[in-house]
Design a protein around this nucleic acid. Structure first.
Lengths: 101, 101
DNA sequence: AAACTTAATCAATCTATATTGATATTATAG
DNA sequence: CTATAATATCAATATAGATTGATTAAGTTT
């Protein structure tokens, strides 16, 4: 008999989970999430912490934002990013269901 | 001030976490883990559940096994795989620390 | 031993995505 | 208005890893 996770209903959730996983499975993106845990930070702080080129960090930020894991506000020249705790928790909980924690 | 996650001590753990994430961020591999949640299964069952070619499944199984997430025993022609719950829990818990759940 | 079954391996290709370099955009300061 | 700073975008390249096809290996059956 076909296991539940191979049925249509689960398929969709598994896809969602793996999308999330792909996004956070990049070392620098996972670090960004950690960096943003405390206060919001501007891009120039982030790339200096990570020791990465600015445009690369912008790219990773865009990916994270595309998944609504972070959000941004512009203040003068700087753009500040902050963690969307809610989204993060939602996806982490979904994941943990699959990992049966 | 440099955030903790960008310091040497955390670096290593973040790397570990992302290695784990990369492995389970593949849809079929995540499914395999779910399939193996109940009983152990032989390869031919797994690839039929997943509707994937046999050699591709063998490849994914090898990746999972390489990370000690599953283990195998041979019985006649068949090879049975089972979940290593312990490893899975260990890595999931490490991950959850980063995600602060 | 020959034929068959199950699974693993290997090389080749395809695909996704990280990275880089150059440039554009937006805002501020002089 | 010009110069500078911070960030985003875009095209090109590099790289990792999934997928495929063919073959091999190991065990079973007749």
């Amino acid at each position: 008999m076909k296991p539940n996770c191979c049925k249509n209903k689960s398929e969709k959730k598994i896809k969602q989970a793996t999308e999330f996983l792909k996004i956070i499975s990049e070392e620098n993106r996972l670090k960004i999430l950690c960096i943003l845990r405390g206060d919001e930070k501007c891009v120039c702080e982030i790339w200096q912490f990570l020791n990465l080129p600015q445009n690369l960090v912008s790219h990773h930020l865009k990916v994270l934002k595309g998944f609504d894991l972070i959000s941004s506000k512009k203040e003068g020249l700087k753009v500040f990013y902050k963690l969307n705790q809610k989204t993060l928790v939602k996806h982490t909980e979904l994941l943990n269901k699959f990992l049966k924690i």
